[in-house]
């Protein structure tokens, strides 16, 4: 199977053509440096993203939060819904852990701002 990706490492934004079989990268073309190959490899085999969003505290003020580690890309919506459902009471401190092991991803959810 052939997949087309845009490399995000620099403004060149090389269009990468990736040959994939059974989830494994057979070849990468279109890249102009080594970083493109490495990016294609990680994007195909295990793409991850850090989620940043807000949780509305019990007092009504939003608290900005993030996943402390990147989570699998295909779990973005599931994880965001789980973060939204967290109960948070003010005050919170930046870095405060609001959830451990979000949906079995191994990532914590932490506050990114001191609120209240």
């Amino acid at each position: 199977m052939t997949k087309i990706l845009t490399c995000i490492n620099c403004p060149m934004g090389c269009e990468l053509t990736v040959e994939v079989e059974n989830g494994k990268v057979l070849s990468v073309s279109g890249n102009t440096c080594k970083r493109g190959e490495l990016y294609a490899e990680s994007e195909i085999t295990a793409p991850t993203r850090t989620i940043t969003t807000t949780v509305i505290s019990e007092q009504g003020r939003p608290v900005p939060v993030k996943t402390a580690q990147p989570i699998p890309k295909d779990k973005i919506f599931e994880c965001t819904a789980a973060i939204k459902a967290l109960k948070v009471s003010l005050p919170v401190k930046v870095g405060q852990v609001l959830a451990d092991d979000l949906l079995g991803t191994g990532s914590q959810v932490t506050a990114t701002k001191s609120v209240g």
């Binding site: 990706l5 845009t6 995000i8 620099c10 403004p11 934004g13 993203r49 890309k73 973005i76």
Partner: peptide
């Protein structure tokens, strides 16, 4: 915008 944002904010 940055390539990274086009991929991770739109393409995703």
């Amino acid at each position: 915008g940055l390539k990274r944002n086009i991929v991770q904010c739109l393409d995703d």
